Computed example of a mutant assay.
Amino acid sequence: METTLLTRENAHRVTMVRRKDTPESEPVAFHFRGKRYGYCSYAHLVGEPAKEEILAPSNFKDWLVAEVAHPGYLDEYFKQACDSYNLTSFSPAERAETDIASHEKELHEDLQSMPEEQRERYTENYKRYFLAMIAANGRCASAMITGPARFNTARNEKACNSYAKSVTAFKEWRERALEAIRKAVEAAKPEEQRDMEEWKKVKHFIDDAASTIHGIDTGTERGYSRSLFVSNLAGRISTYANHGNVEIIDRAIAHLREWNSKVKKPIVTERHSIFKYPELARKVREKQQERANRENREIPFDGGKVVYNFEEDRLQILFNKIPDAEMRTTLKRNAFKWSPRNQAWQRQLTRNAEYAAGQVLKLSI
């Protein structure tokens, strides 16, 4: 059986250890930084925390890893992480441990939320951004560490700004990647599953709002505005009506009527416009079906084309090559978003969208 020694590089993710001289013994708990003395001053504990049995890093070599919280995604970058703090910290190793530990935990949690086939690419990109960040950090310095003599303030300010940009780039990439993966996972679900999950969310919202409204009526909930809760409930459900989601609307109205039948004072009276939502949803769906049956329309321009995609209810701009940064910024300012699935810049098909596309492309649409 393969054995792994406890080291400073892997200690942050180890949860159980056993002595090297008794490898068949029962493992005991390992508490990374289980005792804190002050800033960047810690002690690792082994066994029961209350006993405070300290295990110094110099004695790690006498212990074997029995269990870990997650794989060592970033262990190989431990030295680079330490080096990146050489000019900014009196405790570079401790700062590096913190960085490695927090980012490995974050990466592990991210990977658990995505399909297996997405994990390798995500991990590679995560490592790339992490390395760029610690490399930028290594170019920063502190006069407290290097000494004030001939300290190049201008160069250091530039280096610190570069590091801040790398941190921001890392954060923004992660948010975009996770959102794209989430959307892909959602799109891959069977339609029945998506509908059921959506209905569960709507039902939970209705139950929560109705319960509070009933509490206001009976005096068990005080300090709330009944009209505000009813308005909020109607507004939330109206979104599905405006999107033509007949199935959700029908179930939502039926569920509201169930609530009304169980309480003395109706949650929402039958006079309320919310009970006209089924009719509204059907009218919206009819229009959607009529629009989907229309043939797409294209307007060419120098460098691409504008597409009226009636089936998806989107006005799309397709370029022959990637537009420059200025054009991309202009598109975003005019509410066009990039769709990887359609390989197009698009927004909902409205008169405002047509006007915006005309302004962006200098076309008469």
Rank of each mutant, 00 (worst) to 15 (best):
T3S: 14
T4K: 13
H12C: 11
V17T: 02
V17E: 02
R18L: 06
R18Q: 06
D21V: 09
T22K: 09
A29G: 02
K35R: 15
Y37M: 12
Y37V: 03
S41F: 07
Y42I: 08
H44Q: 06
P49K: 03
A50M: 02
N59W: 01
V65R: 03
V65N: 00
H70D: 10
P71W: 06
L74M: 06
A81F: 09
A81V: 01
S89G: 06
S89V: 05
E97I: 01
T98R: 13
E104A: 10
D110N: 11
Q112H: 06
M114P: 00
P115A: 12
E117C: 02
E120T: 09
R121H: 00
F130E: 02
F130N: 01
L131K: 07
N137C: 11
R139F: 04
S142D: 05
A143F: 15
I145A: 12
R150A: 15
N152P: 09
R155T: 03
K158D: 11
C160N: 14
C160S: 14
S162I: 01
Y163N: 11
E172D: 13
W173H: 08
L178K: 12
I181R: 09
A184Y: 00
A188Q: 01
A188K: 04
D195T: 10
W199K: 10
W199R: 11
T212K: 13
I213L: 12
T218R: 11
G219C: 09
E221H: 07
S225G: 07
S225N: 15
R226S: 08
F229Y: 13
Y240C: 06
N242E: 14
G244M: 06
V246Y: 05
N260E: 04
V268C: 13
E270M: 15
E270I: 15
F275Y: 15
L280K: 13
R285K: 14
E295Y: 00
E298K: 11
F301D: 08
F301Q: 06
Y308K: 05
N309S: 09
N309M: 05
E311L: 14
E312T: 04
E312P: 00
R314A: 10
I317V: 08
L318G: 03
N320C: 13
N320T: 14
I322C: 14
D324Y: 06
M327E: 02
K332T: 13
N334H: 13
A335E: 05
S339M: 08
Q346S: 09
T350H: 10
R351K: 14
N352E: 13
A353T: 01
A356S: 00
A357N: 04
A357G: 08
G358L: 00
V360M: 08
I365W: 05
